[in-house]
Design a protein around this nucleic acid. Structure first.
Lengths: 256, 256
DNA sequence: GCCTAGGTCCCGTAC
DNA sequence: GTACGGGGCCTAGGC
């Protein structure tokens, strides 16, 4: 990791560092008192306060307040930058063409500016809960219903992408939709769209929503739309997969 | 803004700074070579690489790679921390009770550690496109249909929160749902849920989806569900509001 | 480019 | 706490 940091930089030092850092596609970090104006898909304003600003090599911009995970303002990758000094203030503008939007950051004071070159080639592996459920279901469809057989692990319809297309023990087609969290109304509607499309060709088509739990309203809707709900939670699925000797790595790590 | 920063700290300096910073609910910034293991709602692993780590005073954790707006790993506000040295490595763990999840960050090298106290009491003002549309519609319902009258700006149903409840020139009830962006299938289903509930009491109820555009599938669904779609884009609404002498602030700013 | 769906979504708000 | 919807959501994957 190469880079430098300047504490309480002069305006000129700061401008130079910013231009250099962004121009060379480095990571730029700034701490200071700044205000933010945004206009694009929406618009926002935020008066002066002490915040952390980050510009990444891909053109991403992040402005963080002292609380919350989410940045208060940001700009997605690919943004273009302009920096200048005006009336003793350092201004940094980020611009994006499509959709057209811009963020203007005005610094009243800069306490810290840093420019670093990060090397990070590692692969990020994410194991999502839905993935785990689906994997377990494919190995053991009886987790949802005895006699169920998986026909297609994914099926593309006009209405969208079906999680799992199956047939039951009576050869009736079954659409299975997984939700890792408590299923809400939108989940029911999503399943309903798939089943609707298929029922036009075959009114016998069943739809099963599989989730660890379901909201009261969603359950009512499941019934009124002639769909079904089956309880299945992720922990159970993990156990099933483990028992089939395909342990999930991060679990092992945290067991040690 | 008070704080300090240490470049290439020793392990001991680093541990001390981390404990002090988090304990005092300050902003902690670290640059270094680290790996991340997460287990909770999902699970993930990420081998060593050079990254930026942030811990905020409210317990939020962010780990950023050199690209993308989104952190590769994070932990929401309210998380609890533990830091220690093990076999020459600095380990920082963030733990959350509900839902139960933990992030473990292992540093192989630390290039920078900083602890700062930020003061930021400013109010963030966001003007969303949907807000603008609704405001314009309330002042000028004829933007959507001549003779429409707004009865309630919001109406809570079992099925959810209706954007705008109106009656048309024939006194038929009308549910109006706004979308700032191109309306998709979910938007139609959302409107449909509201209208369904109301049609049970009065089959004459109309539902109008108002958006700048609509996907092909969504338009088909609008028709098959006996709903309606009206085009209205945000720019038009802004003009209408401006002409009524209630300019939107951020526009003024960017015009200068 | 459009469209759909997922996300450890986060976040606010009402009940 | 639970439920629901919005977000400048972001990001990935198809087509």
């Amino acid at each position: 990791m190469t880079g430098f940091i300047i504490q309480n930089p002069t305006l000129e030092q700061c401008l130079k560092a910013v231009k250099m850092g962004i121009g060379a596609r480095r990571l730029l970090i700034m701490l200071g008192e700044l205000r933010v104006d945004y206009f694009g898909r929406g618009s926002s304003e935020l008066d002066y306060g002490e915040r952390l600003l980050i510009v990444k090599g891909d053109g991403s911009l992040l402005i963080h307040r002292p609380t919350n995970v989410e940045p208060v303002n940001w700009q997605p990758p690919g943004s273009l930058y302009r920096a200048y000094v005006k009336r003793g203030l350092l201004v940094l503008e980020a611009y994006r063409k499509r959709p057209e939007e811009r963020v203007r950051v005005t610094f009243r004071r800069v306490s810290l500016v840093g420019v670093y070159h990060l090397k990070d080639g590692a692969e990020f592996k994410l194991y999502t809960a839905e993935e785990v459920m689906k994997k377990a279901f494919i190995k053991r469809p009886d987790l949802v219903e005895k006699g169920l057989r998986v026909v297609m692990e994914e099926k593309r319809l006009k209405a969208g992408l079906v999680d799992c297309f199956c047939v039951d023990s009576s050869n009736r087609p079954v659409v299975v939709e997984f939700k890792k969290d408590r299923a809400g109304i939108e989940a029911v509607d999503q399943l309903s769209r798939y089943v609707d499309e298929l029922r036009r060709g075959n009114p016998e088509v069943r739809g099963i929503l599989v989730a660890p739990s379901i909201t009261k309203e969603a359950l009512e809707r499941v019934r009124s739309l002639n769909l079904e709900y089956r309880r299945l939670d992720v922990r159970r699925c993990i156990k099933v997969l483990e028992s089939m000797e395909e342990p999930i790595k991060p679990l092992e790590y945290f067991e040690s």
